[in-house]
Amino acid sequence: MAKHRIYTMSFASVYPHYINKAEKKGRTKTEVDEIIRWLTGYSQDGLEEQLEKQTDFETFFAEAPEMNPSRSLIKGVVCGVRVENIEEPTMQEIRYLDKLVDELAKGKAMEKILRK
């Protein structure tokens, strides 16, 4: 089976859409970055380096310093699919991020988004 095309897309090409979605709802780039850092373990410098390098999604998640163990607490539907039921690990990581950005845009408190 061929890889989904999102895997080869650069993370930097989608990142502005995450920011835009959040800002339209009164949230900030800083909050989006915090969510990404929480999920992946990247430092802010590490995140910015990945954006500069135009790293693809598959590599972005494969090179993540430490995926947050609490990400398994992320539940719900993104694009009509339950994130907790996605079997392909990289796709699940991508959908976890989508779900967190959705929660941010819906006005959820950061402590709830970050599963504290």
Results as ranks from 00 to 15, higher is better:
K106E: 15
P16F: 01
I113F: 00
I19L: 11
N68A: 06
D98H: 10
R82I: 08
A109I: 05
N20A: 11
R95D: 06
L47V: 10
K24H: 07
V32N: 01
K99Q: 12
R27P: 01
K108G: 00
F61Y: 14
Q54H: 09
I94A: 10
M91G: 10
E66C: 09
V101E: 03
V78W: 13
N85C: 03
I35Q: 00
G26S: 05
L97R: 01
K106T: 08
E58L: 11
P69S: 06
E103F: 06
D98V: 01
E66V: 10
K24G: 03
S43G: 05
A105G: 10
K99N: 05
Q54E: 15
K116C: 03
G76E: 04
T90M: 12
R37V: 03
L39K: 05
R82E: 15
E48F: 09
I36H: 03
G80V: 02
E103G: 04
K112P: 00
F61W: 03
M9S: 07
C79H: 10
N68V: 05
A109R: 12
K53G: 01
E52D: 14
T40D: 02
G41M: 11
L73A: 14
R5I: 10
V81K: 14
E66D: 08
E49Y: 09
M67K: 13
R37I: 14
G76Y: 04
K99V: 05
R71K: 12
G80F: 05
P65K: 09
F11N: 02
I19K: 11
A105N: 10
M91L: 15
L47I: 07
K75P: 00
L97F: 07
E49A: 13
Y18L: 08
Q50L: 10
T28P: 06
M91A: 12
G46A: 06
L39R: 06
L47R: 07
Q44A: 14
L39F: 07
F61C: 02
I36Y: 07
V101W: 08
A12C: 08
E84N: 14
R5M: 08
F61R: 00
L114S: 06
L114V: 04
T90W: 04
I6G: 00
A109T: 14
S72Y: 12
D102R: 04
R82Q: 14
E58R: 10
E93Q: 15
R82F: 11
E87R: 10
R71E: 11
K29T: 12
E31Y: 07
K75Y: 12
K116N: 06
E31S: 03
P65A: 05
F57I: 04
E52I: 10
L114M: 09
I113R: 00
R115A: 12
N68R: 10
S70T: 13
E58F: 09
K106Q: 15
L104C: 08
N68P: 04
Y18E: 01
V77K: 07
R95Q: 14
P69H: 07
I19Y: 08
I19C: 08
I113M: 00
N68F: 02
K116R: 12
R95G: 01
E31T: 05
Y42W: 06
R115L: 13
R37F: 11
A2D: 12
Q92S: 00
E58W: 06
K116M: 09
R5S: 13
M67A: 09
S10P: 03
S10F: 05
E49I: 13
